[in-house]
Amino acid sequence: MSDDANLIERFLEMLVAETGASQHTLSAYRTDLEQASGITGGLLSSADREMIRKLPSHWRRLKNSTVARKSSSLRRFFGFLVEEGFRENDPSDALPRPGLVRSLPKTLSHAEIALLFQLVAEGLGREPVKPSVVRLSAILELLYGSGLRASELVGLQRSSITGDKPYLIIKGKGEKERLVPISQQARIAVRRWGEFVDSKEKWLFPSRTGHISRIRLFQIIREHAVRAGISPVKISPHVLRHAFATHLLEGGADLRALQTLLGHSDISTTQIYTHIDSARLVELVNNRHPLSQLDLTR
């Protein structure tokens, strides 16, 4: 299998595991990427800006919406390659942006998050407690409480969390290490889960062949959402990460601090959350500004 074919498959696997992409979505991505790979002679994954700049010449007869989709597919693919360490730079800024409006990431409300944790708390309160519930508690605390990526969570080693250290040192995308704060509640949840894991195990969330896969993590989260009465379409490990970021920003977090917590190399990636928060800001102006309290019709 060529490098392009192999990396496209890994990219599509990531989409399923982290976002629950539908077969229709996967098919569209596959078509866009395989066509671009064919145009570049099978060198898409290693293409430089000059090569990428030539792609739009093959899209001249296409509608703007189709060009926008193809550009978006390639941008996400190159972002994946950089973040996973398969290449050092992202050449996708050479692609056209035909009236693109960047879509906002899905997130969950505070009430929906509360439902997820309430159901876990009920399970932890039963005797005997099920190991699967203890594991789920640790997973939710780390995904929503620390904003870990799915790949970072499943790849956590038992040694990642030791004693009462208020942080994790994890290796994120691109093999970059970063400090991730971990709450007291998360440490308790992880410590409790550790009692169910064989001390000889390397991974914090082991499986029969190593650690649990991103696809299995996705299934665990969705199954729990259904039990909590939340539409499974609305949730994935990545949505919990978005909720972590959105709710921190709503609580007054600084954008630079949020960038560090999420492990974004470029703050422009983090700035998408300012758009999510815009509705709250409009409400703030409408309800709290002095002029909103005045009756100017008199």
Rank of each mutant, 00 (worst) to 15 (best):
E177K: 12
H211T: 11
G145Y: 05
I188L: 14
P131N: 13
I230W: 00
I188Y: 10
I220H: 02
Q185N: 14
T162H: 06
I230C: 01
I188H: 14
E223F: 07
I182D: 04
E175Y: 09
T162P: 01
E152L: 01
H211Y: 11
L156V: 02
R149I: 01
A150I: 03
I139S: 08
K173N: 13
S183V: 06
L153S: 04
L140Y: 00
S151N: 10
V226C: 09
F205R: 00
K202T: 15
F218R: 03
G194R: 11
I215D: 08
P166H: 04
E223W: 05
Q219V: 00
I212W: 03
V190D: 05
V180Y: 02
G163S: 06
L143C: 09
A225V: 04
L136Q: 02
L217W: 05
Q219M: 04
E175W: 08
L142N: 07
I221S: 00
L168R: 05
R135D: 03
I230Q: 06
G155Y: 06
G229A: 12
Y144E: 01
A225Q: 03
R216A: 09
P206V: 08
H211D: 11
R158L: 03
A186Q: 11
S213G: 10
A225D: 01
R135Y: 04
P181I: 08
E201W: 11
I212R: 02
R216V: 12
Y144N: 01
I170V: 15
L156G: 04
E152I: 04
E195V: 14
R187E: 01
E141M: 03
R187D: 04
F218W: 03
G163V: 00
G147L: 02
F218P: 03
A138F: 07
Q185L: 15
E195R: 15
E177V: 10
G194L: 13
A189L: 06
S199F: 10
L217S: 07
G147K: 00
E141I: 02
G210W: 12
V154R: 07
I230R: 02
P206I: 08
E195G: 14
H224T: 08
I182M: 07
S231L: 13
L148F: 13
V197T: 09
L140D: 04
V154H: 03
R208K: 15
L136M: 15
A138Q: 01
I182R: 06
S146G: 11
R222Y: 01
R214I: 02
L168I: 04
I188S: 11
Q219P: 00
W203Q: 09
F218Y: 11
D164V: 03
K171Y: 09
R208W: 11
D164C: 05
